[in-house]
Design a protein around this nucleic acid. Structure first.
Lengths: 239, 239
DNA sequence: TCTCGTACAATTGTATACAATTATACGAGA
DNA sequence: TCTCGTATAATTGTATACAATTGTACGAGA
């Protein structure tokens, strides 16, 4: 099952369809297309050097992801991702990563456990050298393995989506040395709990891990990347 | 914001694109297309009386939803939804509905609260007459309002997806009189907690509500609808 | 001047044509 | 008989053509 999942992912990056989809997605998340901006099929097609067909297919997917809204016979409008969206995603992710760790406690394989241990070890090494590129890669891999280890297609799917969503923000966060060290400590906690088959501890550790990542992001003012995107729809929840 | 969301939904049902998408989706969820079955674009197009273009667009969306898997240059294969998937969705939904209720505690409007109260009242009435059609409708509406009331585009989006996913199974479950009465009691608990601005209680009540719905479904053997779809990939988690 | 309606332009929705890729059938050679 | 290679069919990927819808500009009439 994991086999062709990965292959699919890889193939996608090189296939036209995948390229168009990922490119437009990236352009929305990076802020190239502003909130409420109308996306014209031909314009984007020309920019990417393709016809309307692949663009339209990408639009359908982006709509399902909630990044754009398609009004029939009218057009596609960027929904974007607000500061509040990012916060909400982290809150949701906190719960789901917790559930993931909890389930992984029961279904993780020996190989996966070993790979997690290796990642923690390697991260320690790279963190001491401030090598942010590798740290990011290892962090991604750590979570990827947990997603696979939870043995739930549905949960894995959800977490992967969210992970992608905040990837751009998260990458910047991890590049700070201090957080990467702390983050790895938290990974170790999760790992230990899983190894000890302590599902409650694993869940809590994973919960906290995501919340901490969010707190850290806020503290470092990395929200600024999204400044001005607030749409004024908020009703002021502040928990 | 809610305004055109609804309009979109309605328009979709009547637009060709929406029809094709929903129809294929329904056919997969209803088991018409078996697990791993290959979906041919022309065949399905002919069956629905449309060309390949709308079918392909629907395929892209279904892939993102995880209902089919598209292998480039090969074909689209049904992923289906296994017994374990249903269970996992309920577990995930339990957490997310909890979060939704918790957030709604802070952001719900007076109008939404009143509508929830009305729904609970109406459900009591219809339950006493065993009118399952109305009960289902009201139950849907209850959750819909909570999704809107949590004031989180992201969470709302996720919950709506899951809700759709299990709708077919859930409808059968609710038609049992006993559950519908109990279910409404649980709705009342959630509502009371929200009215009292007790976020902890609201979260717990919503958590339990979903878990109970699942337990009830299992007890009533409604799993049978999915019998034989198990793919043997499981590694035996049994919590 | 303002309003309304019609024509035209722009854009999306769908169907079809063509290209590229993959699966299959069949036959030649060992 | 078996294997391999080539031709052919089937299917997907992309581009384009045409239809339907929507937005806009302009002018006639009050």
């Amino acid at each position: 099952m994991k086999g062709y999942d990965v292959k699919q992912e890889v193939t996608d990056k090189f296939s036209l369809r995948g390229r168009v989809f990922h490119r437009i997605r990236e352009d929305i998340l990076s802020g190239k297309y502003k909130d409420n901006e109308e996306l014209k099929e031909v314009a984007i097609g020309e920019e990417l050097g393709v016809s309307r067909t692949p663009v339209r297919e990408a639009f359908r997917q982006l709509e399902l992801e909630g990044l754009i809204q398609i009004i029939p016979n009218k057009g596609a409008y960027v929904t974007g991702i607000t500061v509040k969206d990012v916060k909400d995603i982290y809150m949701i992710r906190s719960l789901l990563e917790g559930l993931c760790a909890k389930w992984a406690t029961h279904s993780i394989t020996k190989e996966q456990l070993e790979e997690l241990e290796e990642i923690v070890y390697l991260t320690e090494f790279h963190a001491s050298r401030g090598n942010s590129e590798q740290i990011t890669e290892l962090d991604n891999r750590f979570h990827e393995i947990l997603y696979e280890a939870c043995n739930s297609k549905m949960l894995e799917h959800q977490l992967r989506d969210f992970h992608d969503y905040v990837l751009r923000v998260r990458r910047k966060t991890l590049s700070k040395y201090k957080r990467s060290t702390q983050s790895n400590k938290e990974h170790k906690e999760i790992l230990t709990a899983i190894r000890n088959k302590d599902e409650k501890k694993a869940e809590e550790a994973a919960n906290r891990h995501v919340l901490n990542a969010y707190e850290n992001m806020v503290k470092n003012g990395l929200y600024e990347a999204y400044a001005g995107e607030e749409t004024g729809n908020e009703r002021g929840r502040t928990d």
